[in-house]
């Protein structure tokens, strides 16, 4: 499973139950749709840290890194390449 599909699967199975959401477009805005809210954002961060062996710092916590599956994938890619 590629990173994008992996992230989408996590969001669908863990964060969106009860909303009737069965798929997420990679560019869909997870923040404005309330899929990633204050109560699940740290769950998502924990998943990324554990799954990809990255450390998410305070400075990484911006909407640009988490607003869509595509932006999360790009963020994970940067972290794995040692970029900030």
């Amino acid at each position: 499973m590629n990173v994008s599909a992996d992230i989408e699967q996590f969001i669908l199975s863990e964060l969106t139950q009860g909303r009737g959401i069965t798929e997420i477009d990679a560019s869909e805005n997870l923040l404005s749709k309330g899929i990633v809210d204050s109560h699940v954002v740290m769950e998502l961060v924990g998943f990324l840290e554990q799954r990809y062996g990255i450390a998410v710092g305070d400075g990484d916590l911006s909407p640009e890194n988490f607003e869509s599956v595509a932006s999360i994938e790009a963020f994970v890619g940067r972290k794995r390449n040692g970029q900030t």
Partner: peptide, 12 residues
């Protein structure tokens, strides 16, 4: 706009 998650929006 979109204040949640506030953790990601505090800079804005």
């Amino acid at each position: 706009e979109d204040p949640n998650p506030f953790l990601l929006r505090r800079q804005r």
